[in-house]
Simulated assay, not measured.
Amino acid sequence: MDEPRAAKLTDRELDVLRLLAAGLSNRLIARKLDISDKTVKNHLSSIYLKIGATHRTQAALYARHIGLTEPGEAAPSAPAFASGPERDVPHAGSALTARERGVLRLLAAGLSNRLIARKLDISEKTVKNHLSSIYLKIGATHRTQAALYAQYAGLAP
Rank of each mutant, 00 (worst) to 15 (best):
A6I: 01
A6K: 03
A6V: 04
K8E: 15
L9W: 00
T10D: 07
R12K: 13
V16Q: 06
L17N: 02
L17C: 11
R18Q: 14
L19R: 02
A21I: 08
A21Q: 04
L24Y: 15
L24Q: 11
N26Y: 12
R27D: 09
L28V: 08
I29F: 06
A30E: 11
K32L: 04
L33H: 01
D34Y: 05
S36T: 15
D37V: 15
K38V: 15
V40G: 10
N42E: 15
N42K: 05
H43E: 09
L44A: 05
S46P: 08
Y48C: 05
L49T: 14
K50L: 09
A53K: 09
H55N: 15
H55Y: 13
T57C: 09
T57D: 01
Q58L: 00
Q58D: 00
A60R: 00
L61P: 04
A63H: 03
R64Q: 14
R64H: 09
R64Y: 13
I66K: 13
I66D: 07
T69Q: 13
T69C: 12
E70R: 09
A74Y: 08
A74P: 05
A74E: 01
P76H: 11
P76G: 10
P79A: 04
F81I: 07
S83V: 11
E86Q: 14
V89W: 07
V89M: 09
P90W: 01
P90Y: 07
H91W: 00
A92C: 06
G93W: 07
G93F: 01
A95L: 15
A95T: 10
A95N: 08
L96W: 07
L96F: 10
L96S: 02
T97Q: 00
A98D: 06
E100V: 10
R101W: 08
G102H: 08
G102Q: 12
L104N: 01
R105Y: 12
R105D: 01
L106N: 07
L106M: 07
L107T: 11
A108S: 12
A109E: 02
S112L: 10
R114V: 14
R114Y: 14
L115Q: 09
A117G: 06
R118Q: 13
R118E: 14
L120H: 00
I122N: 02
S123I: 11
K125D: 08
K125S: 06
V127M: 09
V127P: 08
V127Y: 04
N129M: 00
H130S: 04
I134P: 03
Y135T: 02
Y135I: 00
I138M: 13
G139K: 06
G139E: 02
G139I: 12
A140V: 09
R143M: 05
T144Q: 03
L148P: 03
A150P: 08
Q151T: 10
Q151I: 08
A153N: 02
